[in-house]
Simulated scan of single mutants.
Amino acid sequence: MRGPKRSLEVLMTGGSGFLGRGIVERLLTQHPEWRISILDLHPPPDNLRKRIAQFIPADISSAQSVNNAFVEYSPDLVVHTAGIVPARKDRYSTDPKQWEKVKAINYGGTRNVLDAAMSSGCRKFLYTSSCTVIIDDLDHDYYNMDESIPVGRATLHYGKSKGMAESYVLAPELASLGLQACALRPATIIGPEDTAVMSLIHDLIRKGETYFIVGDGENFYDWMYIDNAVQAHILAIENLLTTQTAAGQAFFISNQEPVYFWDAFAFIWAQFGHVPKYRIHIPTAIAWFVALILEIMTWFTGNAPTIDRGSVKDGMRTHYSNNAKAMKVLGYMPEVPLTEGIRRACDGYKKHLAAQAAQNGETKKER
């Protein structure tokens, strides 16, 4: 890409996280002349911190904290990946307190960052949204979904908050003030440094729950390898700095390889040497009833259930996206096939488990 002669100032929020760190590392390689700064609650690893222009500690849920970060600092472009992803028992939570927390970070935090950036003079903004702005509507399947589907139907905290933030970023009112922004909606991202997604799937081996399939097992699901997510972000950044044809738009991105949900799980388990000897299909009605009983038990005991009604619904739905728009406008094409991406992600999680085991062994010796 032919860029301006002077060094660009690029701010990455969430640059210490899984996706943000990957984008920063790619930018440093492809555009070494740019000055990359990271704004995050937590500092990046030392080896990355030494290569960036600066690390700015800030809490995006606090307007004052964010405003302080932009004092005497005006980036040319902001990439906003920071946010919170409710996991495990919080994924399907209906707790109002949990909603306020998620909303404050994902929606309020996005407003704080964008407002402060615009006040500083920045007019280019890339927002990492999520496919959940659509699929967190658990009552419907979404086959080959595209950007024509309206946002606002999501009921789960994550997708609802990301949809609100995306709508703010792409609001015509801000575009009229000169803002050139776009939003990317990645599918579930996996990679060698991911522990969130892989731990959930790997834990099913330990719990002895790999033998069950909820529903008929014929529901499709989208995944995305980290390198492909990074590539899409780089293309969007370069677009906003040149042709701006992506400005004002949202884009679904994935590996463009939807697979059977339960087959993907089985393939992941196989990478750890676990192949279920049999698979039992649990009818939807029975799974729903069991989930309801477990939720009632949870209410009395305070322990998190293995499944709940939300996870039952999610485990038998189909949802995958059409990436045609990202391919046409951004030139996006997945670099790493899904099977290879899963193998790399599993290899990374094996190293994580080995390091964890070694650490636990050292702890026992110290005792």
Rank of each mutant, 00 (worst) to 15 (best):
I296G: 06
F272D: 03
T301K: 13
A246M: 08
G302H: 10
D227Y: 08
A250F: 01
S199Q: 10
F252D: 09
F212H: 05
I253P: 01
F267N: 02
Q256S: 15
I293W: 12
A232K: 02
P192A: 02
T306A: 09
T284D: 15
G248D: 09
I213E: 06
T301W: 04
L241M: 09
L241T: 05
K277L: 09
T245Q: 12
N219W: 04
S199F: 03
Q244C: 10
Y211K: 13
M224V: 03
W299Y: 15
P305E: 08
P192G: 04
A247E: 01
V259W: 03
G217W: 08
V275T: 15
T306R: 07
V197N: 08
Q271I: 09
A196D: 15
L292I: 04
Y221D: 03
I268C: 02
G217L: 10
A229I: 01
P283V: 09
N228T: 06
Q244F: 13
Q231E: 15
V275P: 04
I213T: 14
I213C: 12
H281R: 15
L200D: 13
L204A: 09
F265K: 12
F267A: 12
T284W: 00
A304D: 05
I253H: 03
P258Y: 07
G302V: 07
D203M: 02
W299I: 08
L235A: 07
T195Y: 06
Y278D: 04
G273I: 03
F289A: 09
T242P: 08
R206G: 14
E295H: 14
W223H: 04
Y221E: 00
W269S: 10
D203N: 13
P276F: 07
Q231V: 01
G208Y: 05
E209V: 10
A266F: 00
G217C: 07
I282P: 08
V290D: 00
